[in-house]
């Protein structure tokens, strides 16, 4: 009885899903598998800088000089629009700045404060314990200043997109005029006023104007590579990977110890298992 019911229920579900299949197949056959869109055809996969990042691969690590350059690019360019709200100035000690340098760097920023005498809101120089301030009062102000798009917080950006650091690098270096082939294939596609074409962005038009526009836009200290657009883009992308994953170094180091320990323990476990089972072993062959 139960098997009869089961077979009926099974055929029921199968029948309904096959009906859906047939209607879907009919639509696909008569109308094609859905239209190709410009976003589909012209979207490009993220590519990292030539030679990759120092932290690529399972054992890669930070390049402190690069992170410090990236910090400089963030401060001088991106911070005009983007916040970094999960990072505190004290965290900069993790990328090779001394305690004194961190204090000095923090003091270069203006953060909201409270006047100790009147209790009114004012501003004051940053302290190491402060978090990076937001460039805008609130989201409405941010949207108003950016053509209705809110510049997202960058703390976790390199973990919040497919492609991670490579994506940020590609986005910063990928602005170009609308390609002629795209214009031909999709004549109705356009980049509206205030948006900018970038093949790495999911819908190809984004509200951020190219932030890195000229070699030497940021002046690097003596002994650093030339601040070309690509170099600055790579440096700030690396810095943003650190802001997203500050424990990378500790994680990989701990992981290595764990792995060595687990391999050793597992080999021991294998031998003890062999040893214990040797007494009952007589298997078919002997």
């Amino acid at each position: 009885m139960i098997r009869i019911i089961a077979i009926l229920v099974g055929l029921g579900f199968t029948g309904v899903v096959m009906l859906a299949f047939v209607t879907g197949a009919w639509t696909a056959a008569t109308e094609g598998m859905g239209e190709e869109t410009a976003e589909h055809v012209f979207h490009e996969e993220a590519k990292g800088p030539e030679g990759g990042f120092s932290f690529d691969g399972p054992l890669g690590n930070w390049d402190y000089a690069q992170l410090q350059r990236g910090y400089q690019v963030y401060r001088e360019v991106c911070a005009a629009c983007h916040s970094l709200k999960y990072v505190a100035f004290r965290d900069l000690a993790q990328i090779g700045y001394t305690e004194g340098q961190v204090k000095a760097l923090a003091a270069e920023w203006v953060v909201p404060g409270i006047d100790p005498d009147t209790g009114e809101t004012t501003t004051r120089p940053g302290l190491p314990t402060d978090y990076f301030p937001s460039p805008y009062e609130n989201n409405i102000a941010a949207a108003a200043a950016n053509n209705n798009a809110i510049p997202p917080d960058l703390s976790l950006m390199t973990k919040a997109r497919h492609g991670g650091t490579d994506y940020v690098y590609s986005l910063l270096t990928g602005y170009e005029p609308l390609p002629a082939e795209l214009r031909e294939e999709f004549p109705e596609f356009e980049t509206p006023e205030g948006l900018h074409f970038n093949p790495y962005f999911a819908n190809l038009n984004l509200a951020m104007a190219p932030p890195l526009t000229a070699d030497g836009q940021v002046t690097y200290a003596e002994g650093n590579p030339d601040p070309t657009i690509r170099q600055m883009a790579a440096d700030v992308s690396a810095f943003l990977y650190w802001t997203a994953e500050p424990k990378l170094e500790q994680r990989r180091q701990t992981g290595l110890w764990f792995l060595v320990f687990m391999l050793f323990a597992t080999i021991l476990a294998w031998f003890s298992k062999k040893q214990i089972w040797s007494a009952v072993k007589p298997k078919r062959e002997d």
Binding site: P58, K159, A160, R161, H162, G164, R251, R252, T254, G255, L256, F258, L259, M262, L263, A265, T266, A269, W270, S272, K273, I276, W277
Partner: peptide, 30 residues
């Protein structure tokens, strides 16, 4: 207990690799 101990070791090796070297691989960036 010995056989399960060995099996646990093997699975923990994979678990260690994922947790320490690719912790976000199975997650979603969004």
């Amino acid at each position: 207990t010995a056989k399960d101990g060995f099996g646990l070791g093997v699975v923990l090796i994979f678990f260690t690799i994922m947790t320490f070297f690719a912790p976000n691989m199975l997650g979603h960036p969004d």
